[in-house]
Design a protein around this nucleic acid. Structure first.
Length: 591
RNA sequence: GGUUCGGUAGCUCAGCUGGAUAGAGCAACGGUUUUCUAAACCGUAGGUCAUAGGUUCGAAUCCUAUCCGGACUACCA
């Protein structure tokens, strides 16, 4: 029985001893004592008064007195209104630290022998990645690391949207206006080059629409009849017919994009175990439509189009296959979901996709459940909020997007300026300096994006650079570097046991944080929220910095105390490093 | 209109399986360095937790309504 279970059980026993009344165990809950009061564990006594027949204060006294007498790990207690605060003996907390220290895999929860798939990134190959994609990628990668830490076997998947009318738009514009421009000839990164022609298409298209409207067509008609859009549609048909020239162009331009994406992925530090391409999966799903028709989950209209009636679920009628037999988005997604499951047989599958697609995923999951696939209940849409600018939503066509590559470069530059201004690493070789700027710049960016609850929309103001002070990635990296500095200076192995018997409040605060780590991993994994880890590790770093400020370590003469504090430092560093690994953020040895 | 997510300090966010006087960071103001890295530490100031009801011993947290904002509501993806 652990400490908490003992406290709960003894609390119940205290009242039984007092008057024979039995408090239900479920109504006894322990919580952390707030910082301004003495103690580490608090029991709320309000729910007990109908059993004790005493005031909340008296009830607290009765229980506190009982615990003090009957639990050898309880040091003292105090009662404030309906709150019984319990302080545990220092030795208990020292033991907790030693046990964390000697735990070879602290922060890695026991294997659950369960496969979980995380699909994220899922880019279109017609334009470069922007800040919204950055959030998606960091969130997806971090979620995968988080689930691994929580004991799951994780498969990271990227479903690349490499076909469709939007891809044809870039291809067409490049043919018409590109003059054979290549990444080599222009020096442009491949994804940016292709994106340039996607924008070019839209500009020329708009001109054509204006011209047609001037000729008296309505806007809708003009949009449908503009020569450029007709040409793009024709190109899509040629692609579907596997016209060699079209395919060759498509392959060439996609290869440019992939080379560009690869660089951005590398810069962000994200990776995948498996790629799926829509060009391979877009025809999937039609057999599922057949099954659905046979099971009468779907129905067919006179024009042969296939629909599902979701009005009973509060949704609408939804098209699942066009009248001409071609797929829509959801057709493919039905097929891809089945394919992924047959490839990996995972129990759970998480889609990291923005909340603009809430409706789509609600429908997708509902259809799969209605079709009776037993794996469908394991699907989950991790719906994250959009990244907004002060001016509102980012729009690629209006040029208001924050480009991923630019942003990363700016963050590294800003880390460089800040680091140079502080002048602490002038003795570093140039290569190490650059590495550090990258570590800090990306650390700031990643932490900034990950510390916010994924569900919430996130505001980014490009005119204000991301902070490097306060509740930021670099603050936590700095705490880590400080510890490494101490460990280097003392240069003694971390002991495996402790010979002190009292600890101060700063030390206690750190141990309390360290003790929470694995619980936080479990909670964060269950709620799919790396933000919980980000906020947790910030609290740890704060506690450490206060300790560092107040209490000497390397200049101590008392070796026993020094050993203990070294152990505290080393384990703080360990937990910071692991927390940041979950967030996909590197830690520096010096900064 | 319907569905849905959100609204906490000037700004960015924690806290939300109901518990104490609602917490951080930034920005503002003041202090700390002959002592392990001041990217730090300490302090001051800043709040009708959108609004109104309800449930409860107790509500930022749960329920209802209203207001405000976002997203979705395509034979686009």
């Amino acid at each position: 029985m652990n400490i908490q279970e003992q406290l709960i059980s003894k609390t119940q026993q205290a009242i039984i001893d007092f008057n024979g009344q039995e408090i239900p165990l479920a109504s006894i809950s322990l919580q952390e004592t707030r910082k301004e009061f003495e103690g580490e564990v608090t029991i709320v006594t309000f729910p007990f008064i109908k059993f004790s027949q005493k005031s909340p204060e008296e009830t607290g006294q009765i229980i506190g007195e009982y615990l003090l007498k009957n639990c050898d790990f309880v040091k003292s207690y105090n009662v404030l209104k309906g709150f019984l605060n319990i302080a545990l003996k220092d030795q208990h907390w020292i033991d907790v630290l030693v046990s964390i220290n000697n735990h070879s895999n602290f922060g890695q929860l026991a294997s659950k022998n369960e496969k979980v798939m995380v699909e994220y990134s899922s880019p279109n190959t017609n334009k470069p990645l922007h800040l919204g994609h950055v959030r998606n990628n960091l969130l997806g990668f971090s979620l995968a690391e988080l689930l691994k830490a929580a004991g799951y076997d994780v498969i990271k998947v990227n479903l690349i949207n490499d076909r469709g009318i939007h891809i044809c738009k870039s291809m067409l514009a490049w043919l018409k206006y590109g003059n054979g421009e290549t990444p080599e000839s222009s020096g442009l990164k491949g994804d940016h080059l292709v994106g340039k022609y996607y924008v070019a298409f839209d500009q020329h298209y708009k001109v054509e629409i204006q011209e047609l409207m001037a000729q008296g067509l309505s806007e809708d008609e003009a949009k449908k009849q503009a020569p450029l859009i007709l040409a793009a549609q024709a190109m899509l048909l040629k692609w579907e017919e596997k016209d060699p020239e079209t395919i060759a162009l498509w392959e060439k331009m996609n290869a440019w994009v992939y080379a560009g994406f690869e660089k951005t992925y590398q810069a962000m530090g994200v990776s995948f175990d498996q790629y799926y391409y829509e060009s391979n999966t877009y025809l999937l799903g039609k057999d599922i439509i057949e099954q659905g028709l046979a099971k009468k989950v779907f129905y067919q209209k006179e024009d042969q189009s296939v629909w599902i009636d979701l009005t009973a679920e509060g949704l609408d009628h939804k098209l699942v296959l066009r009248g001409d037999g071609t797929s829509v988005y959801i057709t493919q997604d039905l097929g891809t979901a089945a394919l992924k499951h047959s490839d990996f047989g995972m129990k759970r599958s998480i889609y990291v996709v923005g909340n603009e697609q809430d409706y789509h995923f609600k429908v997708l999951l509902l259809i799969l459940q209605k079709l009776g696939f037993d794996w469908a209940k394991g699907l989950f849409h991790l719906s994250y909020g959009m990244v907004d600018l002060p001016s509102g939503k980012m729009k690629s066509r209006e040029g208001t997007v924050v480009d991923a590559d630019d942003l990363i470069a700016e963050m590294i530059e800003s880390a460089k300026l800040q680091t140079e201004a502080l002048g602490k690493i002038n003795d570093f070789p140039a290569e190490e300096k650059n590495k550090l700027y990258e570590t800090i710049g990306l650390g700031a960016l990643k932490y900034f994006l990950l510390k916010v609850d994924p569900k919430k929309r996130l505001l980014f103001d490009p005119s204000e650079s991301i902070d490097l002070q306060g509740n930021t990635g670099p603050f936590i990296q700095y705490s880590y570097a400080r510890i490494q500095s101490i460990l280097r200076k003392v240069n003694r192995p971390i002991p495996s046991h402790c010979e002190i018997d009292t600890i101060n409040s700063n030390e206690l605060a750190i141990i309390l944080e360290l003790n929470k780590f694995e619980g936080q991993i479990a909670i964060a994994a269950e709620s799919y929220s790396p933000a919980i880890i980000a906020n947790y590790v910030y609290e740890l770093a704060k506690a450490f910095n206060k300790f560092y400020h107040d209490d000497p370590i390397s200049q101590l003469d008392d070796k026993k105390l020094q050993d203990f504090r070294l152990m505290l430092c080393a384990n703080t560093a360990k937990v910071i490093r692991q927390s940041f690994a979950i967030l996909g953020i590197a830690v520096p040895e010096r900064m």
